[in-house]
Structure formats: C-alpha cells, structure tokens
C-alpha cells in the first residue's frame, strides 16, 4: 500500500487554488494537511478521492483503496446506527463482523438501535467515522474528522486511527486541531498556493483570450 502524489494542481470553481503538491504516503503512516481556511484542503482531498478531476499532476494509488469521509457524514436520519453501518458494509462487501467491530471501536454500543436523528452532533460524527471501519479500505482520506467531537472522543478516534496504521493502513487527514498522533507527518499547504497569472502562475483556460 503506497500512495504517491506528484505535481498535483487542483481547482475550485474553475480557479486553480493549489499547484505543485507532491508527497508519498506508505502503509502504516499518517499525513496531516495543514493550512489556513480556503487554501484548498477540501478541494485537494476531493480530488484525491476522485470526485473531481485534477488540473495537472499525477495521483498514484492502488485501485479501490480509498475510504473518504467528508464534512457531512452521509447518515440517514430515519435509520438506526446499526442499519446505517450495515448498509455501508454491504456496499463495500464487508460482513456483519465489520459492523460489530466498528460499533465497538467507536464506542457506539449503547446507541446501536437508536435512530440517527436522535443522536447528538458528536455522536453522529462518531457514527460517521465508524463508517470508515466497515469499508475495509486501507487508505483513509479524512476531511476535518474531529469537528464537534469532545476531547475524549478525539482520543478515542486517535486510537482508532493508530490501530488502523498499525494494521498497515494509511491516513491522509486535513485538520486544524492536534489529534495527538505524534508519529504523523505534517504537510503545510501554504507554499503550494497557486500563483495568479500576474505573479507568473499558469494561465487558466480563459485567460489566454485577452492575453
């Protein structure tokens, strides 16, 4: 399991926001993305997850290896905790064992038969993260995973990530707060901010018209 990103440029709303991003991520390692709001962390994670095309550059990773967790959890309010997880388990072809493991892992045991509508924000987030465990995918791509989690849940989640790494998985995390993952490498996206054409950056498809 190895992921390499080389010379990646990605765009939001037709404007290139990041360019020349490159890193390698091996199994057992975690990479934390840092950078101010609006730098393009979400955009980059969506590009890596395959939701939008890269403007330039290469993303090399084994097929079917990514489990993506976005800002929103994709929970169905009228389904119970177990039903939500079982659905994703069957989508990813993992069994009920994975669901059980995810429920224990994210400490959702007493909530298992409650409808997602009746969970608190932090509990919903925990359920959303538990989905990662049922995917059985090696590379976790996480966008602000700790939003609305309390300190204890953050520790719980850090433990889950650490176990995932120990099993040979990898994680790419965009976050502002310290997860307590001391072994994680940090990549600051600041230097990769795309330059505007006036600063010598590449012309976008529509600048050439009046160049």
């Amino acid at each position: 399991m190895e992921m390499t990103v080389h010379g990646l440029a990605c765009a939001r709303g037709g404007i290139t926001v990041l360019e020349g991003v490159g890193f390698a991520l091996r199994g057992g390692r975690a990479l934390v993305l840092r950078g101010p709001n609006g730098i393009g962390k979400t955009t980059m994670l969506r590009t890596i997850a395959g939701l939008q095309p890269a403007v330039a550059g290469e993303i090399g990773l084994p097929p079917e290896s990514i489990a993506y967790a976005a800002h929103s959890d994709g929970l169905k309010a009228t389904l119970t905790v177990t039903e939500n997880l079982s659905f994703w388990a069957s989508v990813y072809g993992t069994g009920p064992d994975a669901v059980e493991a995810a429920i224990t892992g994210m400490n959702l045991g007493i909530l298992r038969d409650r409808q997602a509508a009746n969970l608190s924000a932090g509990q919903k987030r925990r359920l959303g993260l538990a989905r990662l465990l049922v995917t059985g995918r090696p590379l976790w791509v996480l966008d602000e995973p700790t939003v609305s989690l309390d300190a204890e849940s953050v520790r719980l989640f850090a433990g889950v990530v650490r176990r995932h790494l120990a099993e040979g998985g990898a994680a790419l995390i965009a976050t502002h707060i310290d997860l307590g993952l001391d072994e994680a490498e940090v990549l600051d996206l600041g230097p990769f901010r795309a330059r505007s054409p006036s600063e010598g950056g590449a012309l976008s498809a529509f600048d050439e018209a009046f160049a």
Binding site: G50, Y68, A70, G74, W88, Y92
Partner: peptide
C-alpha cells in the same frame, strides 16, 4: 436528500 447529507459523495466514492 442524498446530496444534502453527503451520502451522494460517499456513494460516488464507493465501489458501486
């Protein structure tokens, strides 16, 4: 509904 709660993103990255 799937678009609002983010399920559609997740379905698009799922193996289906």
């Amino acid at each position: 509904l799937d678009f609002e709660d983010g399920s559609l993103d997740l379905l698009a990255t799922a193996p289906i």
